[in-house]
């Protein structure tokens, strides 16, 4: 069974603010019974001050869905609508001392319900924003805009993470390609304007002038320097260990090491190396280095 924090257990066993709210003037419904969780958030907003005076919820779902809903009502009570709009799914998770990664979608659902309820109060039709987003995951009815939002807000990098946060991709898996495209798009934005890497050029081994060893190492270091900021942001780093012919051995440090991203990261670095050096090389983790053969 899941490892729930004390706080999650407490909010599940003794939920605050559950049940219908007769005087609600802003109601947000998200999810559906097919998906396995559904949440109705009811707000009573003071029309003069726009302060949320009362918040209640009804939830069909697992332990963390109920706890997240309850936490959300506690968080937004007393806030103005504008303040409430700034509440992120991470705020909800933090309020509960964290959620298991597989359950982050419960907090995302909370945030969606909040936005839906506020839109409902303001008389906006929230549907518009969402109809623009193409449906990516049919199994869980998740559209591109939501995935993009969540990827951006939580700095997600893998399909698995997207599934943990939104459920998208957790069923038949046929939408993984679509999710990967969104990840790639957001990643492109992250690397900053102007820096967007051009579509992969065919790497025809140009008849490059033969580089001296010193020049090769210099270029290798330059490539590593260019990717370092990205790695540092993810609490990692990279270091050149050895160059043996076409094999460039590096040491990936911090959270990159060993994670599923390692292969992807090395692949990206390798692509840059090939472009910079004008020759086919392989970037490998230092652990792949052939051991010294003692006689």
């Amino acid at each position: 069974m899941w490892e729930y924090s004390e706080k999650v257990r407490e909010y599940f066993f003794n939920p605050r603010n559950s049940g219908p709210l007769e005087e609600a003037n802003g109601v947000g419904d998200v999810g559906s019974i097919q998906c396995g969780d559904a949440l109705r958030l009811m707000l009573k907003v003071n029309p003069d001050t726009e302060v949320i005076e009362e918040a209640r919820f009804q939830t069909f779902g697992c332990g963390s869905a109920i706890a997240s809903s309850s936490a959300l009502t506690e968080i937004v009570k007393g806030m103005t609508l504008d303040e409430a709009l700034k509440v992120s799914n991470q705020n909800i998770a933090d309020y509960l001392d964290g959620l298991p990664p597989e359950k982050m979608h419960c907090s995302v659902m909370g945030r969606e319900a909040l936005h839906a309820a506020i839109a409902n109060y303001r008389g906006e039709t929230q549907t518009d924003a969402h109809e623009e987003g193409a449906l990516v995951c049919k199994c869980f009815a998740v559209d591109a805009l939501l995935i993009e939002d969540v990827v951006r807000a939580n700095n997600l990098n893998t399909v698995e993470e997207v599934t943990f946060y939104t459920k998208a991709g957790g069923g038949c898996a046929s939408c993984h390609e679509g999710i990967e495209e969104i990840l790639a798009k957001v990643k492109g934005e992250r690397s900053g304007p102007g820096e967007v890497s051009p579509p992969m050029k065919p790497i025809a081994p140009r008849a490059a002038p033969k580089l001296t060893l010193v020049e090769r190492i210099r270029r290798i270091e330059a490539v590593l320097a260019s990717v370092r900021p990205m790695l540092v942001r993810d609490h990692g780093d990279v270091e050149l260990v050895e160059v043996q012919g076409r094999n460039i051995y590096v040491h990936l440090k911090g959270s990159c090491a060993g994670c599923m991203m390692e292969a992807a990261t090395l692949g990206g670095i390798q692509q840059k190396m090939i472009e910079s050096l004008g020759e086919l090389v392989q970037v490998l983790p230092a652990s792949y280095m052939p051991a010294e053969t003692s006689c």
Partner: peptide, 9 residues
């Protein structure tokens, strides 16, 4: 399904 009306589904 009708009573509970998500903004989108």
């Amino acid at each position: 399904e009708r009573a509970f009306a998500p903004a989108y589904a």
